[in-house]
Structures are given as C-alpha cells and as structure tokens.
C-alpha cells in the first residue's frame, strides 16, 4: 500500500508533461502508449511506444514517442536507455526544455546527460535593440552543448553572407553584431538571418534566427535658451542712499562764494554775494533733493560680466548642439527586431 502511494507521487510529475502535449497526437498506437503510461502500466507503454516508432509519425509525434520512452525508462530505472531516448528527442526538437518543477529528478538528470552527449546549438536569441548606426550593436546569445567550433554568420541583404564570429565554445555564448557593412555603413533595412553553425569532428549542427532591420531618423537636440541652474542677474542695481550729492553741492557753492570773496578787489568795497547765493542755494537745494531721492539704478558690473559669460556659454553650447544636430541628421537610427523563429537545427 505504501509502495503504491510512492509510485503515485512519482508518477504524477512524470505524467504531467506528457499530458500537456498529448492533445495533438493523432497516432492511435502512440495514444495507447500514452494511456498506458498514464495508468502506470510501464511495460505496455514501452511496447506501444516502440511499436508507434515503427509506424508513420509526424515530427512532433516522433518526439513525443521518444519522450514517452525516455520517461518510461526513467520510471523503470533504465537510465542509459532513457538518455538515448532523450537524445533522440533533442535531435528532433533542439529547443525542448523540461520543467524542473514538474519532472522527476531522474528524468531531468537523464535529459541533462543526453544534452552533453550530442552536439546541438540551442536557445539562439537576438534581442530587440535601437541604436545609432555605428554606435551600438545587436546582442546575440546561444548555447552550444559540446565543445565545438562555432561560426556565426548573417545572411540576407545586399551583402550576402557576412561572418560575424568564429570561436571554439561550450555552453552559453554572447556575441555582438555591429550591424555594419565592411565599408562601415549601417546594413540596409530588410530581413536578415543569424545562422549559427557548430561542428566538432564529423558532427555538425546549425540553427538560425530571423530578424528585421529597419532605419529611422536620429532625434536632434533642441537649442538652449538658458542653462539649468543658472539665471540671468539684473544688470542694474540701486546704490544705497548717500549724502554725497548734498556734500558736493555745498562744496561747490562754498568754493564759489569763497572765491568771490577772495578775488574781489578791496577798493570796490565788500563784494556782492547776492547772485552767487541765489545760484548756490539752487545747487544746494538740488543736492538736498538728490540726497533724499531714491538713487538712480547704476550698472552692476559684476552682474553684467556674469550675464555676458552666461550668454557666451549658452551660445557656445548652442553652437555645439548645432554641430551635433548636423551630424545627427547624417546618421541613421537602426532598429533590430527578431521575427518568428525559423525552426530547429539540422
């Protein structure tokens, strides 16, 4: 009773992945094998699955048949046979992944061992990216399951085939494509394929990913009217009130009257101060009013120089922006978007 419960617990995660993909299976033998596996009748499932492989199957059905064999062998503790079956699955569907949360550890380890025993390039990905032609690149990554010579090429467009990378690699590989022709110009807009070919000895494998390259205009920069954080200062300032106008008025008047007194001839009696006093009083009154009056704004030299520097900085920055915009108008914005997956490798 206890053993039956354990078997049920183990069988549930084994069954789930198969159930999820059993809907499109049309072959009756394979459906019978799936049904037997679902009922934990491993020997019947094994026989039916092997029988189905001798019948005419679609690629998807064939992969499911091998996968059913692999899970059945794992359940029967025949790990080597499970590995062989998983190898067939991966060769048919290189992108096949098992959900670690729904798959038994035995089946997972057999799947991982199978991956290391065959040469496959998996998970080829091209990221969507926007950049200015010549100033960016397209990130490309893939995983190769065995140490091998891997050549990455771009096909399509007027340039034909362009090799963009050649390396000996194992595991995940990250490369970057500048999307430029040998002349340095950005690649023309259009559809391209990234083809990754791996080879070791007599074994080789290749896979591809389509992508669309489109061109656009590079945004230009707006001109500046002010520098952030810097504002113009008032170019005039009102000086503090001063007694200087009144002082000057009295000084001038005093000098004039004293001069009159000093320069007058003694033979002519005492000089007349009436005329000088009238004008002097006017000047003193003007000086008094000017002293009380709010002083006129005076040019603030420091602020004028500061504003001049600020204007020069803005003008210099705008000249740089104008040059940058001229350059940007000659540039091309490149957009790379991956399109539908091209399919498995060979």
């Amino acid at each position: 009773m206890m053993r039956g419960s354990i078997c049920c617990l183990v069988a549930v995660p084994l069954v789930l992945p198969v159930l999820l993909s059993a809907q499109s299976i049309q072959n009756a033998t394979l459906r019978r094998a799936q049904h037997a596996f679902d009922n934990l009748e491993y020997r019947q499932a094994l026989g039916a699955a092997q029988a189905s492989l001798r019948e005419r199957l679609t690629g998807y059905e064939r992969a499911r048949a091998y996968e059913l064999l692999a899970f059945t062998y794992s359940g029967m503790d025949s790990i080597l046979k499970a590995v062989d079956a998983f190898k067939q699955v991966v060769l048919i569907e290189p992108e096949r992944e098992l959900d670690p949360n729904r798959t038994s550890p035995k089946a997972l380890s057999a799947f991982q061992v199978a991956l290391t025993q065959i040469l496959v390039v998996r998970q080829l990905r091209v990221d969507s990216v926007d950049f200015i032609g010549g100033q960016g690149n397209v990130p490309i990554r893939y995983t190769v399951t065995q140490p091998s010579r891997v050549v990455t090429r771009v096909t399509g467009g007027p340039g034909g085939s362009m090799r963009i990378d050649s390396t000996v690699a194992n595991g995940q590989v990250n490369i970057r494509w500048t999307a430029r022709l040998p002349s340095g110009d950005p690649v023309p807009a259009g559809n391209y394929n990234i083809v990754v070919e791996a080879s070791v000895g007599q074994n080789s494998f290749s896979t591809s990913q389509s992508m669309r390259v489109s061109h656009g205009r590079v945004d230009t920069l707006p001109h500046l009217t002010s520098l952030p954080g810097y504002t113009y200062l008032p170019e005039t300032e009102i000086p503090p009130k001063s007694w200087r106008p009144m002082g000057l008025a009295f000084l001038y008047t005093g000098v004039a009257l004293a001069g009159t007194s000093a320069l007058s001839s003694g033979d002519l009696g005492s000089p007349s101060f009436r005329e000088g006093a009238v004008i002097g009083l006017g000047i003193a009154a003007a000086g008094f009013v000017m002293t009380l009056k709010k002083p006129a704004p005076q040019p603030a030299r420091g602020n004028i120089l500061y504003n001049q520097l600020l204007r020069e900085q803005i003008a210099r920055r705008n000249a740089e922006i104008a040059q940058e915009n001229v350059r940007r108008r000659q540039q091309v914005a490149v957009r790379v978007v991956p399109v539908a997956r091209a399919g498995g490798g060979r």
Binding site: P245, Y252, V255, A286, G287, M290, K293
Partner: peptide, 11 residues
Amino acid sequence: HLLGPGVRMRL
C-alpha cells in the same frame, strides 16, 4: 559733477 539723474553742476 552729476548730482543725480539729470542734475548737473559745474564750477
């Protein structure tokens, strides 16, 4: 001397 805006005196 300029005593203020528009006000000039001379000696």
